[in-house]
Every structure is written in structure tokens, then in C-alpha cells.
Design a protein around this nucleic acid. Structure first.
Length: 266
DNA sequence: CCCTCTGTTGGATT
DNA sequence: CAATCCAACAGAGG
């Protein structure tokens, strides 16, 4: 999945194609990303009009005239807008037909994505479990520090905890720690106060850089043959762009962490 | 061809 | 807390 920048890109795409439109049909195809019966989801969304599209962390929220649709893209989810006549791509799991001759297809080969129709109370409950959006909170390093106060996990692991701050995933956590020159195993709650400014700035920098790149149709790091835009993520063994030391890959919480042992000393 | 490993998430289990 | 496994699939490499 897309992390925060990719979900933001998706939100803009859906906003442009759906706000003001009415949903005329909903079709669940193979392996629908729904928790309940597809008929219940269709009943809650068919005939509704789209009023707004929002994002909090990696969550996408579509506000309807009655109710809301909550979408999470998992690892491989994306939403594509097609003319109605165009055949759906493989791995299309859910199809929204709109009143402007286009469809919005939820395509997700790995099927970790989730979609649900919720009322205001359920939406609020869901969002209550998330910390503040990462792009907003990074503008305020002391507030960032407060969110991680007392955290006795490694900083790399704590950054992925969506209840502290929402939107950071495995890629941008590694990139931000490199930019801030922080060792991934530093205990989050033990970071010196002075570290929160560069870490906040690093997060904002790496996520904003991706947002700038992703003005096209597809997510940049998924494009075939594209050169990796990342400094450490996925670059095990390659020379550090800053000092030339070979980038190391290790595992934290069953997830790869990439980092430079010289630039990010313990 | 087959087998193994890895992958952008998040949740459950031990 | 932590480590580990799992969901379901695709792609890379041996």
C-alpha cells in the first residue's frame, strides 16, 4: 500500500472524479474488500451522492449525502477511473458506477484493502483510534515529541504505530530516520528533545517529495523500470548517497529496515 | 518448471 | 512490550 503520500494522491484523484456525482450502481466482484454482505454495502451506497473526499493518515473517507464510505488501500490497493464501457482490470474487487458515464474501480491484487459503509458514529469511532495526520503534526515538533512520550519501542517501530501519528509506513519511516541521522533502534521515548525537529522535518521532506512526484496517474515506486527515488529504502548493499558506506538491511517487527550504519550511529 | 524469499499493511497470537 | 505468523498474490532469483 501506499503510504500517506500515495493515499493523498488517491484522495485527490477520487475527489476530482467523484465529488458532485451520484453512485448509480455498486458491484462486488471477486474477493470483495467488504466485511459484511455485498448487498448491504450496495444498499447503503447506491443512489447516494458524493459530497466530499477526505484523508486521515492512510484512511480514505468518502462523505455521502447519507453516510460515509471508509477505504483502506492495504498494500496494493488503488482506485482507477474508467469509462463505463471499458473492461475492468484484473484484480478489480469493487466497482462504483457514477452518473457521469465513468466507473471508479477498487483494484487490489493482494487483497489486503478494506472498504466499509459507516454512519457518523462508526466513522468517529474509527478515526478516534488514529493519531493526528503525520503531515500536519510534523509542522509542530514539540507536539510530535508529545505523541511519543513514554514510548519504549524502537523509534522505527513507533513511527509505524498509527495510533501515535497516522500515515507513516515502512518506506517513509526509514527515509525520515536517515534524513534525521537517527539510529532505527533508538528508544522512541528516550530521543533527545533536539532530535524531534530534524525527525519531523525529515518526515515532511520525504513525504512531500513523493507527493510532488506523484502528479501522474500511477504511484511512482510501482512504475516498472523506474529508478528508485529513495535514499535508503530497498537499497541494501548500495553505497550511501551521503558517505558511501554500504546500506544495511535488518528486520524489526518482521519488517525490513534499511539504514546507513555510518550516518545513523547508535 | 519448481521452490523459496520478499514485498507499500494491519491484526491476532504467543 | 517483543517476536512471529497470517491474510492472498506477484515478481525475482536460484
Amino acid at each position: 500500500m501506499p503510504e500517506l503520500p500515495e493515499v493523498e494522491f488517491c484522495a485527490r484523484h477520487v475527489r476530482a472524479g467523484a465529488v458532485g456525482r451520484r453512485i448509480t450502481a455498486v458491484e462486488a466482484t471477486i474477493g470483495p474488500p467488504l466485511e459484511g454482505p455485498p448487498a448491504a454495502f450496495a444498499a447503503a451506497t447506491t443512489g447516494r451522492s458524493v459530497q466530499a473526499v477526505r484523508r486521515v493518515g492512510k484512511q480514505l473517507i468518502v462523505d455521502l449525502d447519507i453516510g460515509h464510505v471508509l477505504l483502506h488501500l492495504g498494500m496494493t490497493g488503488k482506485i482507477l477511473r474508467h469509462p463505463i464501457a471499458q473492461p475492468p482490470r484484473p484484480a478489480t474487487r469493487l466497482i462504483f458506477t457514477l452518473d457521469d458515464g465513468h466507473r471508479l474501480d477498487f483494484v487490489d491484487s493482494r487483497r489486503f484493502g478494506r472498504v466499509a459503509a459507516v454512519d457518523a458514529a462508526a466513522l468517529a469511532e474509527h478515526l478516534d483510534r488514529l493519531g493526528p495526520d503525520a503531515l500536519e503534526i510534523t509542522a509542530d515538533p514539540p507536539a510530535m515529541a508529545a505523541r511519543f512520550q513514554g514510548a519504549r519501542q524502537a523509534i522505527k517501530v513507533a513511527l509505524l504505530d498509527q495510533s501515535r501519528i497516522a500515515g507513516v509506513g515502512n518506506i517513509y519511516a526509514a527515509e525520515a530516520l536517515f534524513l534525521a541521522r537517527l539510529h532505527p533502534w533508538t528508544l522512541a521515548g528516550a530521543l533527545p528533545v533536539a532530535a524531534w525537529a530534524p525527525l519531523s522535518a525529515g518526515l515532511a521532506e520525504t513525504m512531500n517529495a513523493s507527493l510532488q512526484r506523484e502528479l501522474g496517474e500511477e504511484i511512482i515506486y510501482l512504475q516498472e523500470g523506474a529508478e528508485s527515488p529513495f535514499l535508503v529504502y530497498g537499497r541494501e548493499g548500495a553505497p550511501c548517497t551521503r558517505c558511501g558506506t554500504a546500506i544495511v538491511r535488518t528486520v524489526q517487527q518482521a519488517r525490513s529496515t534499511f539504514w546507513c550504519p555510518t550516518c545513523q550511529p547508535a
